[in-house]
Design a protein around this nucleic acid. Structure first.
Lengths: 167, 167
DNA sequence: TCAACCACGTTGAGGACTCAACTATCCCTG
DNA sequence: CAGGGATAGTTGAGTCCTCAACGTGGTTGA
C-alpha cells in the first residue's frame, strides 16, 4: 500500500496547517487558562450550554455538539460541576440520562471570560486574514466537516445514512 | 474592554475551524496511535530528525522546529528514547546541550508508519478539497504563522527582531 | 577573577484526554 | 413479560501536556 506521497504543495500546506493550528490553540488555551482558569474545551462547553433552552442539554447531545466522546464530556462535566459552573440532573423520562445545566455562577464566569477570549481569537486568527480568506477558511473547514459526516463506507454496510439530526 | 464580538461570518468560520481541526487531529492521532503506536506529535519529531544531517538535532533546535516547549520536547524524547527510537548524546562543545539522534530502529518505525499516516492525511484533509482550496489553506496558515512571528511588541521593548535564524 | 545574568535542558506535580470495561436502563421481539 | 440487544453515561488506568522551579554551564563586564 505505498500511498502516493504528498505533493510539494500539499507537503507545505500540511506543515503550515500543523504549525498554524498548533500556534492558534496554544495561544487561546494559554490565554483562557491564565485569565479565566479554564481550557478552551471547557469554555466551549459553557458556550453550548449558554445557548441552549434553559441553559440545559442532555449529556449525549452536549457531547455531540461539542464533538467530544462521552468519556471526555463526562470527565469535563465532573470538573465543571466541582467548580460550581455546571449542575447535573437526572432525566425524569429516561433514567439512564442526565441533563447538564449552566449555573448562574457558570454563566457569570463565561460572561467574564468572553471578551478576552474573543479578542484573542481575533488577534491570533482573524486579524491577519482578509475577509476573502475568512470566507475561504470557512468553506474549507465546512467541506472537511461535511466529508467527516459521510464516514468510512464500512465493508458490508449498505445504507448508513442517518435521518438528518436536525442541528 | 468590551471587545467587538465576532461577526456572524467570523462566528461561523470560527466554529467550522474548531470542528474541522478537532476532527482532523482526532482522526490522525487515532490512526497513528493504533497503527504505529505513537501520537502525531511524536511522529513529527521523528520526521524532523529524519530530515536533519546525520538524523541529529540539538534539543533546542528540535524544540524550535517542532514548535514545542523545551519541557514538552524533553518529556517526548524521554519516551522516544525508552522506545529505542531516539538516542540522546551530550554536545561536546557546549556541555549544557544535548543532541537527539534518530536510531535505525526509529527510522524503520517511521518508514513503516508513513504510508498509513499519509493516506490518512489525504483522506481526512486533502481529498475533500480542490487544488485551489489547498493553495488557499496554505496561504491562510502561512499568514497566521507570519503574524505569529511578529510577537506582542512588549511594552518598552524596542527592537525585538531576531537575526534571521537560517531555517 | 568573580558576580550577575542568561541559555540549555530536566524534573515533578497536576490537569485533560483516550481507551476499554462496566453499570444501569430502555426497547423490542417472541 | 422474559430475554437479548442497544443506548446513556461513568470509571480508572495510562499517556501527554503545561507550568513553575531547578541545576548546571556559558558569558560578560567591572
Amino acid at each position: 500500500m505505498a500511498a502516493r506521497p504528498l505533493s510539494a504543495d500539499e507537503q507545505q500546506a500540511w506543515r503550515a496547517f500543523l504549525g498554524a493550528t498548533k500556534h492558534v490553540f496554544e495561544q487561546l488555551d494559554r490565554q483562557l487558562q491564565h485569565d479565566a482558569g479554564m481550557p478552551l474545551a471547557y469554555y466551549d462547553i459553557l458556550v453550548l450550554l449558554s445557548e441552549a433552552p434553559d441553559r440545559t442539554l442532555r449529556m449525549s447531545e452536549l457531547a455531540r455538539r461539542s464533538r467530544s466522546s462521552r468519556s471526555r464530556l463526562s470527565h469535563a462535566v465532573d470538573r465543571l460541576e466541582q467548580a460550581g459552573w455546571v449542575a447535573r440532573e437526572r432525566c425524569p423520562t429516561d433514567r439512564r440520562g442526565y441533563f447538564a445545566t449552566l449555573t448562574d455562577e457558570g454563566f457569570a464566569q463565561l460572561t467574564a471570560a468572553a471578551p478576552g477570549h474573543i479578542a484573542a481569537v481575533r488577534s491570533v486568527l482573524f486579524d491577519p486574514l482578509s475577509p476573502a480568506q475568512v470566507a475561504s477558511l470557512r468553506a474549507i473547514c465546512e467541506r472537511v466537516l461535511d466529508q467527516a459526516g459521510e464516514q468510512p463506507p464500512a465493508p458490508g454496510s449498505a445504507a448508513t445514512t442517518l435521518p438528518a439530526v436536525g442541528e
